[in-house]
């Protein structure tokens, strides 16, 4: 039953998004704009600084993720549908998990476009180790979205939520950004340091486990006034 609720919420978000594609298009275009802005800021004499591609990729993911989180919950606020979700007897952590999976799917889709774009614009060999890259991106995105989904959901009834979301989210997700950027940077080195990659991945996995658990645990008290 728990899994069924997760599935229902996820499928509902997916259907809504497919109808309008609003968040997908705006998030993706915003991410691409970020990449370009950073390209103009950092590329000198046609060359990006060493490891710059890794940083730019993750900055784009973090910024676009914040935008997507805000928009997704703004949509639930418009007809107060989040209230309706909370009024249903369905397990509230299941609602959280459904929303989280939706955000992760959306960001993954954005990353599928972003990675080749960044690789192309910065002549970075991002796609040299696709499996490692996929693992890093997935664990990093889950960690970022786990905290972000909870914060965006709880901020839905706060004033000035648009600006408060990044203010709260970035300091907490610093470990994800550091680990994501560094691990992606390792992939760009000529020789792959697997041991180091494993350290960063372990950190990301631990972060995911701890914060998804914490979010599931605190979602109920945070959503009741």
């Amino acid at each position: 039953m728990f899994a069924h609720i997760v599935w229902l919420v996820l499928r509902k978000d997916f259907t809504v998004e497919v109808r309008s594609l609003e968040i997908a298009y705006t998030t993706l275009f915003f991410a691409i704009s970020c990449v370009l802005v950073f390209a103009f800021a950092l590329v000198q004499e046609g060359r990006a600084p060493v490891g710059g591609a890794a940083g730019i990729l993750w900055i784009a993911v973090a910024f676009a993720g914040t935008l997507a989180l805000g928009r997704t919950f703004e949509r639930e606020r418009q007809a107060e549908t989040l209230r309706a979700l909370l009024l249903a007897p369905a397990a509230r952590p299941a609602v959280y998990l459904g929303k989280l999976l939706g955000i992760v799917a959306l960001l993954t889709a954005a990353e599928i476009v972003l990675v080749p774009l960044v690789a192309l614009l910065f002549q970075a060999s991002l796609l040299a180790h696709p499996v490692w890259l996929a693992l890093i991106l997935l664990t990093g995105t889950v960690g970022f979205a786990a905290v972000g989904t909870l914060f965006a959901a709880m901020l839905i009834r706060a004033r000035s939520r648009d600006v408060l979301l990044p203010v709260l989210l970035y300091p907490i997700t610093v470990p994800v950004i550091i680990a994501g950027v560094r691990a992606t940077g390792v992939l760009l080195e000529p020789e792959l340091d697997v041991g180091l990659l494993q350290v960063w991945l372990a950190l990301l996995v631990c972060f995911d486990v701890v914060f998804v658990t914490l979010a599931l645990w605190t979602f109920e008290p945070l959503m009741t006034e």
Binding site: L150, M154, L155, A158, R159, S160, P221, L222
Partner: peptide, 11 residues
């Protein structure tokens, strides 16, 4: 944060 921000801040 407006009313209710006490709980959110605790989180």
């Amino acid at each position: 944060g407006g009313p209710g921000s006490d709980k959110l801040a605790a989180g």
